[in-house]
């Protein structure tokens, strides 16, 4: 299994770097245990769960922060990305990042032939 493709952070985004344990049923990204949503019975990543749900969490847990992050980025903030494993999932947020190198894959590997989950 490849690395988790979710990004950590709020003001700036970085790679998760944890080993993925499953694939999100919605966005097909590899996700680690921490980034899979318990409420979706580990079928969705936290990002997709947060995008779909608008629940009020007075405890301000991780689901709330991912939901807030989604709404905040949509309200006009473009987070800065400091990682190395670009993923188009965050394109909607107009993430400020370096330019992708030619031939580089979403999972960060250099081999153009290697697909998702092969690194």
């Amino acid at each position: 299994m490849s690395q988790c493709q979710s990004k950590r952070g709020f003001f700036s985004l970085r790679d998760c770097n944890q080993t993925a344990i499953a694939q999100c049923a919605t966005c097909q990204r590899a996700m680690c245990h921490e980034h899979s949503s318990v409420e979706s019975k580990f079928t969705q990543c936290r990002d997709c769960w947060a995008r779909a749900q608008q629940t009020v969490d007075t405890d301000y847990g991780d689901n709330w922060t991912y939901g807030y992050r989604h709404r905040y980025y949509n309200s006009g903030y473009s987070p800065i990305y400091t990682g190395h494993h670009y993923h188009h999932y965050y394109d909607d947020y107009d993430t400020r990042s370096f330019d992708r190198r030619e031939g580089e894959n979403d999972d960060g590997s250099d081999n153009p032939a290697a697909g998702f989950g092969d690194s």
Partner: peptide
């Protein structure tokens, strides 16, 4: 805080 982060530019690319 995000207002401060808006002032900074993306990191220089390092070889991955």
């Amino acid at each position: 805080v995000s207002g401060a982060y808006r002032q900074i530019t993306a990191p220089a690319r390092s070889a991955a």
